[in-house]
Structure formats: structure tokens, C-alpha cells
């Protein structure tokens, strides 16, 4: 609580400090939903470079939280912390906590196996990245890793998540053809289905529609709307309109710090911070 205010005011110019801390503090108090996760004073270094500086962020359960900010502000870095993607490169370092609720486990702790974290936290990337396998095997992959190999169980779950990802009707007759035969939008929905299959608690979407046309984008957004009934979603997007359309909460980041967090409605009609306002309205900062 006090930490988040301190972070924001450190960043802000002195005359802005009061508004920033007051607004940010208010927003985090007033979050009326149960939390699925909480980022506590998280800092992150790519070797010597500090990319995240003391981030405090609540993630509401079964809500969509959008991370917005200019390129290089650290939003993708923050997103990737949630499933320990940074562990793939030596010299990267976390400080602070990302706590998964309700049991309160710190998923960036060294003592926690990143593979176990990734089974609970799924991720979809900017460009569709299906495996060079059949449509069916793409979706089944996560299930097989979990030791589910029984054909009937796999069939059932594959159909279920393909339906959930609004892809079933388009692929049901060609489940054995290569995933690469699908269009970009279909491939992205396949990737979402693949992510959904092992029933993650949290789904991370890193600009999932930036490579898609408006129709495919609308299909994905409709899907996010459906998914939020059961899963918690964090989305990084460069489209302000998309963040405004599909998120419940929104966090604005700048130079590795969280500047403002609040309900999306508030953020896009009356943001509390001048920097947020300048960014979302497309002005010079």
C-alpha cells in the first residue's frame, strides 16, 4: 500500500507527486474483487539493466487486467515474470514477489520449479507459434506432458477447448492436418486452445491480436470475454482501444515503473496521472 505510493512518487516530478500517490493508493484500496495473484515490490534485472522497479500490482480473480505503456516500459517483461520465461537466460535476476492466491506461493522464488509454474500459468504470444504438428497434437501436447494419454480423454478435452476457443467448427474435419495450414487468426486461436487445455489458473496474453485483421481480432476479443468467466487473464496490448474494450483493470507503466493502476472505466475517461493521460490520448509526454 504505502510502497506503491512511494514508487509512484519517486518517479513523478515533485509537483505531481501528491496526485500520483493519492490516486494510485486509492485505486489499489478500492479493488472490490478477490485476488488471484499479487505482485509485491517486484524488481527485475536483465543482467545489469534494471527493467522493473518495485512493481506493486493486484491481479483480480477471473478479471482481465491490461498492461499498457510505450515500448520498452517493461510491460512484457512483467508479463513474462508470471511464468518465469526470463529463467531461460543466465544472468537475469528477480527481486520481490509474485504471489499466487489463495495459497500464497511466491512463483518467482528460486525454490519454485518454473515448470510447475508454467503448468498453472499459460501464455499466448504476439505471433501465433503452433508446434509443427497436427492441429490435434498441438492441443493435446500439454495434456500428454501431464501424463494424459488415453485417447478418449484426449479426444474429449481437445474438442472441449477447441470449442471454447471458437475454432472447433472450422477444424473438426481436419484435426490431423498440420497446424501451419490454418490462417493467422485460426493459428492464434489454436494457440489459445493449446494454452487452455491443461486448465491454467492464469493466462498471459502478449499482444495476441497485433498480427491479426479486425475480424480475427474481434473473434479473439469475444473469446477473452468468454474466458474471463473461468480464468484470470493478463493482457499486454499496444491498442488503447483494445485495452479499453476488453479489460476490467488497467495498469499503465513507464520506464519500468507502475504509474497508475485502476478500473479501466476510470483510466480511460478520467485518468489521475498526467503521464497516463498523455499516453492514452496520444500526446507528447
Amino acid at each position: 500500500m504505502t510502497d506503491i505510493a512511494a514508487t509512484a512518487s519517486e518517479f513523478a516530478a515533485p509537483e505531481e507527486a501528491a496526485t500520483v500517490s493519492a490516486h494510485t493508493a486509492d485505486a489499489s484500496i478500492s479493488i472490490p474483487h478477490a485476488l488471484r495473484a499479487e505482485v509485491r515490490n517486484l524488481s527485475f534485472w536483465y543482467k545489469e539493466f534494471q527493467a522493473l522497479k518495485g512493481i506493486q500490482l493486484p491481479i483480480a480473480d477471473r478479471k482481465v487486467t491490461a498492461l499498457i505503456g510505450a515500448s520498452g516500459c517493461g510491460k512484457s517483461t512483467l508479463l513474462r515474470c508470471f511464468n518465469r520465461m526470463h529463467d531461460l537466460y543466465a544472468g537475469n535476476r528477480y527481486d520481490g514477489e509474485i504471489v499466487l492466491k489463495p495459497e500464497g506461493e511466491n512463483i518467482v522464488s528460486r525454490s519454485v520449479d518454473p515448470i510447475l509454474v508454467r503448468m498453472r500459468v499459460g501464455m499466448v504470444f504476439q505471433k501465433p507459434n503452433p508446434f509443427p504438428k497436427s492441429i490435434y497434437e498441438n492441443v493435446a501436447a500439454g495434456l500428454r506432458i501431464r501424463g494424459i494419454n488415453k485417447r478418449s480423454a484426449l479426444d474429449e478435452r481437445v474438442e472441449q477447448v477447441l470449442r471454447q476457443a471458437a475454432l472447433w467448427n472450422e477444424v473438426k474435419d481436419r484435426l490431423d492436418s498440420s497446424a501451419y495450414d490454418l490462417s493467422g487468426g485460426q493459428q492464434q486461436r489454436l494457440c489459445i486452445a493449446r494454452t487452455l487445455a491443461p486448465e491454467p489458473e492464469l493466462i498471459l496474453l502478449d499482444e495476441p491480436t497485433s498480427a491479426l485483421d479486425p475480424i480475427a481480432t474481434a473473434v479473439i476479443e469475444e473469446l477473452v470475454d468468454e474466458l474471463r468467466k473461468n480464468v484470470t487473464i493478463i493482457i499486454v496490448t499496444h491498442s488503447m482501444q483494445q485495452a479499453a474494450r476488453i479489460s476490467d483493470y488497467c495498469a499503465f507503466m513507464h520506464l519500468g515503473q507502475l504509474i497508475e493502476f485502476g478500473e479501466t472505466e476510470q483510466m480511460f475517461t478520467n485518468p489521475g496521472n498526467v503521464k497516463t493521460q498523455d499516453y492514452i490520448t496520444g500526446r507528447f509526454g
Partner: peptide, 14 residues
């Protein structure tokens, strides 16, 4: 909130 706003990046919008 400041009364004077910065200018838009897109001049035609401004």
C-alpha cells in the same frame, strides 16, 4: 488534472 494539455502527436487530430 492540468488545465493545459500537451499537443497531440498527430497534428491533424489536434
Amino acid at each position: 488534472m492540468a488545465t493545459t494539455l500537451n499537443e497531440h502527436i498527430v497534428t491533424s487530430y489536434e
